[in-house]
Write a protein that binds this DNA or RNA. Structure first.
Lengths: 301, 301
DNA sequence: CCCGCTTGATACCTCCAGAGTATCGAAAGA
DNA sequence: TCTTTCGATACTCTGGAGGTATCAAGCGGG
């Protein structure tokens, strides 16, 4: 049996007459006769009463008509859903994020994607950078977010946003009296650094900036993420270099200050990572959203 | 799109490899390649990732796999149900009965049919003989039950059972003292006759039997059906000729007696009627049940 | 009562699409 | 580097879907 048989059968049942059905199907009457006979033979069931007035459905035929219409509807729905999936409008997107990155850009980005692709289920996974790359290779995630990403084989990156560095200081720290901090202040004040873990990371960035200026920072503590770092600042562990978005964290006692001498490399990027060979339409749609987001950001800084 | 495409697609998805899928489908690999390409072109969606290891489903492909399996199941179920309908095992049978015939044979018959064809919904309609014939012609019913049926154009009959005539008498009627009644007694006792309505009927039968013996029955009342007739006997209206099955009506004060001289034509038949041109498998199955029932009846009288 | 119209069925032909054979190119493993 | 395994392509062939012509049966009108 074939979908053609069903199409023909429905036409004959609805027209009640081979000639008119053939007309509607844009074929001639004899092949239609044969296709209906073939269908009946294959089912082993008589579907029509042949009368001089036309074709009348038998009881079995009436039942089969319902079934045939149902099959047709199911097939149509299946193709429609598959096409939406093929356009990246239906499905699932597994996204990896790192501990404290959910501060500013990522929620906005995910919200924007959700608005344009309401039928895509976005699943979030918290992972370190190394775990993200592993998960990408195993296809457990489709896209990851991270900072300080170097070029990697098989992995593509797309910049989300670039943030300048700020210094988190305690309100009772004398530095907080200054509206902007000179970078060298890091040589004399204990600094909380993050994250520990896979290199290259934010710590390297800060160390490089200091070495560039010919001094060694006074490291008081290394922690896992920005939230912990700012918490330690609140407890008097010293100061902490954080990306702009960390200012979302309003912790009592902590103030954020820019650098007065704004070093040219005192910026940190947030990018997303994905397999370069991944042609998934959902990923493509997501990357489009990322690009649109970045353009909107740079348009009104 | 074609059911063949779905079959091929499912095979490739399950084997993960064109070669093995082709083997399983008993075709060679190149046509399979083309059919899958065709399916993808038609949907406008990429369903597989081609890798050197084989064919991996994309996300859209996975969704379509579920849909395809579902379609296959729906089609299978449709053919299966249609085939059962074609064998008369699934569907609906509209049956006409007359007022008081539901006494003995018909309930047993319907019960027996219900046991062998549990998925056929039997719908009962109460109709007079003339209404039954009309309804048959308009296909509002498939089979009817009645007595005293002559040959009719386009209508076939199948004998259900033949019952001998009994006389219903009141227990205070002197006739009730006799274990069997002489037929001539009808000449001297008031008789309740039924039914009124379309000829030929049971009344004609009784009149003919009397005339055959050269007397005219003393008619006290004509009524519509056996139940009313027996009720009148209970009220002292006289005697009433009834078919054997009426003895199921156990009304206080009414006794049933056979005729002592059992006239050879003192039998009345119950038949079913149907369109001779009706090839419906449910009707055929029902008529088979009727024949089997009659044979069982005549085997142990 | 016959003729014409409508209905589905049959015979025969044509041609396309699905299936087969041979072969290629790419990637992974020995 | 060579071999194996995978999918893709080019070419050919054949079965079956579709077309034309025609038939047989039943109904309605003259």
């Amino acid at each position: 049996m074939d979908l053609r048989h069903l199409r023909y059968f429905i036409a004959v049942a609805e027209e009640g007459n081979l000639g008119r059905a053939a007309l509607r199907l844009h074929i001639s009457q004899p092949p239609l006769t044969r296709q209906i006979q073939q269908l009946e033979d294959e089912l082993g069931v008589c579907l029509f009463r042949r009368t001089p007035k036309g074709m009348e459905l038998t009881q079995a035929g009436e039942l089969f008509l319902e079934e045939a219409r149902n099959i047709r509807a199911v097939v149509e729905q299946a193709t429609e859903r598959t096409q939406r999936a093929g356009q990246g409008k239906l499905g699932r997107l597994d996204v990896a994020i790192f501990g404290s990155a959910i501060l500013d850009a990522i929620p906005k980005l995910l919200l924007s994607f959700r608005n344009t692709h309401p039928e895509v289920k976005v699943v979030l996974h918290t992972m370190t950078k190394a775990e993200q790359l592993d998960a990408l290779r195993q296809r457990r995630i489709t896209v990851g977010f991270n900072r300080m990403l170097g070029p990697m084989a098989e992995i593509g990156t797309e910049l989300v946003t670039t943030e300048s560095l700020l210094l988190a200081v305690h309100e009772r720290d004398p530095l907080s009296a200054l509206p902007a901090i000179p970078f060298r202040a890091l040589a004399d004040n204990p600094v909380v650094l993050f994250p520990t873990g896979a290199r290259p990371n934010f710590v390297d960035k800060v160390m490089a900036l200091c070495h560039e200026r010919g001094f060694e920072p006074l490291v008081s503590q290394e922690v896992g993420d920005a939230v912990t770092g700012v918490a330690l600042v609140a407890s008097g562990f010293g100061v902490c270099l954080v990306p702009e978005s960390a200012t979302t964290l309003q912790i009592p006692g902590v103030l954020y200050r820019p650098f007065v001498d704004a070093p040219s490399q005192a910026f940190v990027d947030l990018s997303c990572v994905f397999r370069v060979d991944d042609q998934s339409p959902i990923l493509r749609a997501f990357l489009d959203t990322v690009r649109a987001f970045r353009e909107r950001q740079s348009a009104r800084p």
